[in-house]
Simulated assay, not measured.
Amino acid sequence: MTVRDEADFTAEFDGLRALSARVGGDPLLVQAAGGNTSIKRDGTLWIKASGTWLANALSDDIFVPVAMTPLLDCVERDDPAAEKAQSFVIAAENPSGLRPSIETTVHSAMPQKIVVHVHCVDTIAVAVRREAEAILERRLEGMNWAFVPYARPGLPLAHAIRERLRPGIDVLVLGNHGLVVAAETVADAAALLERVCARLGQPRREAPPADEEALKDVAAGSGYRLPQMAEAHAVGTDRQSCRIAAGGSLYPDHVIFLGPGSVVADEGETAADITAAAKAAGLPKPASILFPGKGVLMREDASAGAEALARCLAEVTARMGEDARPRYLSEGENAELLDWDAEKYRQMLDSRAGAGRT
C-alpha cells in the first residue's frame, strides 16, 4: 500500500469514528452498547468491539481487526467458531485485547467497504410488526433494500442475510432488530442512513406526564427508583404503549438488558408486592416495572444498558399505532438470547460499567 493509500484509509477510518460517535450519541439511533460499525481494507475487517459504546469512538479504542477470509470460510461451513470471531482477530493489531462484536458475521456478509448497523427506533417500530415487509415496500420504494426476518444475532442472522442478499442491496431492515446500511465511503453511508431514517420516520404519540409522587409511594422500601431518563415513563403513562409492551419482547437488546417481556403492575400493586411474588416464584427482581397511568420504576442497581433500553421501549412503542400487529419474540427466542455466551459477555461488560453511565 502506498503512502497516499495509507493516508486515504486513515482519513476514512477517522471519518468512520466520527460517524460512529455521532450515531452512538443519538438515543433514537443507538442505545448503550448497541449498534456497530465497520470498515474493510485488504482482507481485514475493522469492527466495533463487543460491549464498547459507539458514542466513545473518538475517545476510546473501540475497533478490533478481524481476518475476513478464514471468518467467511467458517460462516460458509456453519462453523460455531464464526459466532465469537475471536479466533480470527489479528492479535498484533489488537493491543487492547478487544473482542469482536457479536455482529461481526453480519458485517462480513455485506460486500461494501463501510457497514453501519443501528437500532433506529423508527425502523424497529416497523420491523417488529407482522406487516413490516408490506410497509417497507411503500416506504423504501426505489431503494436497494431487503427485509430479513428475525434470526438470532450472530451466525443465524448472517445466514439469513445471505439468503436475502442480492447484487446492489445496500439497505437491510432486520425483523425485530434494526437497520443496516452499507456503502463504499463513510460519507455515502452517512447519507444513506439519513435517507432511510427519514423514509421510515413516523409520528411519536405524546404521552401524559409521569406521576412521580405516586411512583415514589409504590416504590417505598422496595429497592426501586425513578428512571434516569424521564422519557422512559411514557411506556407506562401511555395506555397504548403499555398494552404493546405487556405483550412480550420486541427485540434482542430488550431481552439482554431488561429481561424477557415487561412486568406490568396491576391496579393497587406496589413494587414490593411484585418483588415478593418474583422471589416466591424463584425469579429475579425485574429490571423495570411499568405502572399504568403512573410511569416506570427501575431497580436500584439497574445498569446503564437497562436505563437506555427502558427509554428505547418507550420510544418504539410510542411509534406504533392501534392498527399495529406486533410480532413478539417467542419463548425459545428469548431463551436462546439469555443462554448465549456472546450476550452474557455483553451483560458482564455493561454491569462493570456501572449503573448511571450515560
Results as ranks from 00 to 15, higher is better:
Q240E: 08
M229R: 11
H254Y: 01
P284I: 14
P286C: 01
A281G: 05
S249D: 04
Y251A: 03
K294V: 01
S262H: 11
D273Q: 13
D238T: 04
G268M: 14
R311I: 00
M298K: 02
R225K: 13
E300Q: 15
V255G: 03
A314F: 07
P252G: 03
I244G: 06
S249I: 07
H233S: 05
I256Y: 08
L226M: 12
A220I: 04
V235R: 01
G305S: 09
K279Y: 01
Y251K: 04
A318R: 14
G221S: 11
R239H: 07
A314S: 14
P252I: 01
A271T: 13
A234W: 06
P286K: 01
A318K: 09
A287Q: 08
S241A: 13
G321I: 03
R319Q: 10
A271E: 10
L226K: 11
Q240G: 02
G261H: 05
G221R: 09
R299L: 12
V316G: 05
R299G: 07
A234G: 08
K294L: 12
L250D: 04
S288A: 13
D301N: 12
P286D: 01
I256V: 15
R311S: 09
G236M: 08
A220T: 06
G248N: 10
V296W: 02
G293I: 08
L309M: 15
I244A: 07
P252F: 02
A271S: 10
L313W: 00
A287G: 09
E307T: 14
R243I: 00
C312E: 14
L250F: 07
G259R: 04
G259F: 03
G268R: 12
T270F: 09
L290C: 04
L250N: 02
R225G: 12
G223Y: 07
M320D: 02
T275C: 07
I289F: 05
D273R: 11
M320K: 03
L313S: 02
P252Q: 03
A287P: 00
A276V: 01
